[in-house]
C-alpha cells in the first residue's frame, strides 16, 4: 500500500514537473539523489565523478522531461540517463587518454572502503578492470535485478547483446579471481 501511495505521489510530481513546476522537480531530484549517486558509485568507482555525473543527469532530466513517457519508474529513467552520460564520458576520456585521473579516483575509492573496515574483495577489483560496456550491465542485472530487456532499453542495445556481455563479464571476473573448475 505504501509503495502505491509513493508511486501515485511520484506520478503527480512528474505531471507537475512537466508543466514547469520547479518545486516538483526539486522534490523528485531530492528523493532520487541517493539512488542515483549510489548507482554511479558502483559503476564509476569514483566519488568525484559520481557527483559530477549526478548533477549532469539532473540537468539532462530537466531538459528531456517532456519526452519521459512514464513507462518506467523515475529512478530507472534517471539511471538510464546517467548510464549513457557515463558511457559518453568514458568514450571522451579514451579519446583524450585521460587514464591517470580515473586510476587515482579508483585508488582513492579503494582506500576509502578499506579504511572504513569494509571489504574490497577481488571480485570488485576485477569488476573495476572490465570495460564500462560490461561492468554496467553486470551491476544492473546482478545488483539491481533489472531484466535483460530492461538493461537493453537503458543502454540502447539488444537484450541478446546484454546477455552475452553479462556472461562474458562474469567469466572475466571469475578468471581474474582464479576460480577454476579444479578448485
Amino acid at each position: 500500500m505504501k509503495v502505491s501511495v509513493r508511486a501515485v505521489e511520484e506520478k503527480q510530481l512528474i505531471r507537475r514537473a512537466k508543466k514547469g513546476d520547479q518545486l516538483a522537480f526539486a522534490k523528485l531530484f531530492q528523493e532520487n539523489y541517493p539512488i542515483l549517486f549510489k548507482y554511479l558509485i558502483k559503476v564509476t568507482m569514483s566519488a568525484e565523478l559520481s557527483e559530477e555525473l549526478t548533477q549532469e543527469t539532473m540537468a539532462k532530466a530537466i531538459e528531456k522531461m517532456h519526452v519521459f513517457h512514464e513507462r518506467s519508474k523515475f529512478s530507472t529513467w534517471l539511471i538510464s540517463i546517467a548510464t549513457n552520460l557515463y558511457i559518453d564520458f568514458q568514450r571522451k576520456a579514451k579519446r583524450e587518454r585521460n587514464w591517470k585521473a580515473q586510476e587515482d579516483a579508483y585508488r582513492k575509492m579503494k582506500w576509502q572502503v578499506e579504511s572504513n573496515n569494509e571489504d574490497w574483495n577481488d571480485a570488485l577489483t576485477e569488476l573495476g578492470k572490465l570495460p564500462e560496456g560490461h561492468r554496467v550491465p553486470i551491476v544492473l542485472k546482478h545488483y539491481y535485478g533489472y531484466s535483460y530487456d530492461e538493461i537493453g532499453e537503458i543502454m540502447n542495445i539488444s537484450s541478446g547483446t546484454v546477455k552475452s556481455r553479462v556472461h562474458n563479464g562474469i567469466m572475466a571476473v571469475r578468471k581474474g579471481m582464479n576460480i577454476n573448475e579444479e578448485d
Binding site: V113, N116, E118, D119, W120, N121, A123, R174
Partner: peptide, 23 residues
C-alpha cells in the same frame, strides 16, 4: 562470483557518504 560481486558492491554502497542537499 555473483555472490562475491554483490558483497563487494554492498560494501561500496554502505561506505558511500551522501550529503543530500536541501530542497
Amino acid at each position: 562470483v555473483i555472490e562475491e560481486l554483490t558483497k563487494g558492491l554492498d560494501s561500496l554502497d554502505q561506505q558511500a557518504e551522501i550529503d543530500v542537499p536541501n530542497i
